[in-house]
Design a protein around this nucleic acid. Structure first.
Length: 287
DNA sequence: CATCAACCCTGAGAGC
DNA sequence: TGCTCTCAGGGTTGAT
C-alpha cells in the first residue's frame, strides 16, 4: 500500500519534464510528468472515487485548469492548479499513470481519467476503490489536521519526545495516527520499530527522550531508504520500487530476524497486522 | 478522551 | 480444474 515513500516517488515522477517521450516501461526518472499540462476534460468511472465536490462539478471545474506544481503532504498527492487544488489519496491500491490519450487502452480499475489538451492523460487506477480525489479551494480544509512530516527538520527530537510523552496509547498506534505524525503506514511503522528495538505495544509515554530520539532516527532511516529504493512494490501494484526486498520484519512472520535470528512474530495492533522480533523488541517490564 | 468494531472493496490464497 | 470462503488493509464513522 502506498505510504510516504511510495507517494513521494510518484510525486517526483509527476514533476519530471513533461516533454519526455512515452515508452512502454521507462525508468521512474524518464516518465513524462504533468507540470504545465492543461486539463481538457475529466472522465469519472466510479463516482465514489470523487470525495469533493460531486463528480459532475469536479469534472466541470477542472476543465481548463493548468497544473502549476505537484507536491506531497503525508500520503496525499497535491496538485496546485490555477485557482483550485487537486488532492489524491491512493489509500490501499491506488496508482497513477501518465500516458498518451490515443493508442493506449484504458485498464481495468481505471477510476478517474484526466485528459490533457496536449494529447496526454493522467489516470487514477484503484483496484479496491478505497482511494479518493478532492478538488478544493483551500488544501488545508483536507490537510490542515495532519501532524508533522517525519522528514521535516521542524520536527526536532525534543518536539517528538515531548509529543510522545503525552500519549498513553501503544507506540505503534500513535505512529500510525496521521494527526500525530503524517505519512507513516503499516509497513514503515513495523520496520522503524524493529530498527529502534521498541515493542509495538509499548506505551508511547514510556519512551524516555533517548529512546524517542532513537525512534525518530529509525523512522527517518526507513523512510529515506524507502525513497532511495523508489518505494515498495506490493499488493500486486508494481510501481518500480524494490524496497519490498529489504523488509526487516514486515510480512516475514516465522522467518528469522535479520539481527538475531529469532522467529518473527505477528500480532494485531489497532486492527493492523504487526510484525516484530520478540528478542530485539522485548515487551516493556512494568515497574 | 480512548478504544474498538464495522465499513468500504477486490483478488490472492487456502481449502475442498 | 474450479468453486467457495476468508482475509488484509488506510482511514472514516459510529458505538461503547
Amino acid at each position: 500500500m502506498p505510504e510516504l515513500p511510495e507517494v513521494e516517488t510518484i510525486a517526483r515522477s509527476l514533476r519530471n519534464a513533461p516533454n519526455l517521450a512515452f515508452s512502454p516501461s521507462p525508468g521512474l526518472n524518464k516518465r513524462p510528468g504533468v507540470i504545465g499540462r492543461t486539463v481538457a476534460d475529466v472522465q469519472v468511472n466510479w463516482q465514489r472515487s470523487v470525495a469533493e465536490p460531486d463528480a459532475p462539478t469536479f469534472c466541470e471545474r477542472l476543465s481548463g485548469q493548468t497544473i502549476a506544481a505537484v507536491k506531497r503532504r503525508a500520503k496525499f498527492l497535491v496538485f496546485q492548479l490555477d485557482g483550485d487544488w487537486l488532492l489524491i489519496h491512493l489509500r490501499m491500491s491506488g496508482d497513477i499513470r501518465v500516458e498518451p490519450r490515443s493508442g493506449v487502452p484504458l485498464q481495468a480499475h481505471d477510476r478517474v481519467i484526466f485528459n490533457f489538451k496536449d494529447g496526454a492523460r493522467m489516470v487514477f487506477n484503484d483496484t479496491r476503490k478505497f482511494g479518493r480525489v478532492w478538488l478544493v479551494e483551500d488544501p488545508d480544509s483536507i490537510l490542515g489536521c495532519l501532524g508533522p512530516e517525519p522528514l521535516s527538520t521542524a520536527l526536532t527530537p525534543e518536539v517528538f519526545s515531548r509529543s510522545l510523552l503525552q500519549q498513553k496509547r501503544a507506540v505503534k498506534t500513535v505512529l500510525m495516527d496521521q494527526k500525530f505524525l503524517a505519512g507513516m503506514g503499516n509497513i514503515y511503522t513495523d520496520e522503524a520499530l524493529h530498527l529502534a528495538r521498541i515493542h509495538p505495544l509499548e506505551r508511547a509515554s514510556s519512551l524516555e527522550p533517548g529512546r524517542a530520539e532513537g525512534l525518530l532516527s529509525a523512522i527517518r532511516e526507513v523512510l529515506e531508504e524507502g525513497i532511495r529504493r523508489n518505494g515498495a512494490s506490493i499488493d500486486w501494484v508494481y510501481r518500480g520500487g524494490d524496497f519490498q526486498n529489504y523488509f526487516r520484519v514486515y510480512q516475514r512472520t516465522g522467518e528469522n530476524c535479520p539481527d538475531c535470528g529469532t522467529k518473527i512474530e505477528r500480532i494485531v495492533v489497532s486492527q493492523r497486522g504487526t510484525h516484530f522480533c520478540p528478542t530485539c523488541q522485548p515487551p516493556m517490564i512494568k515497574g
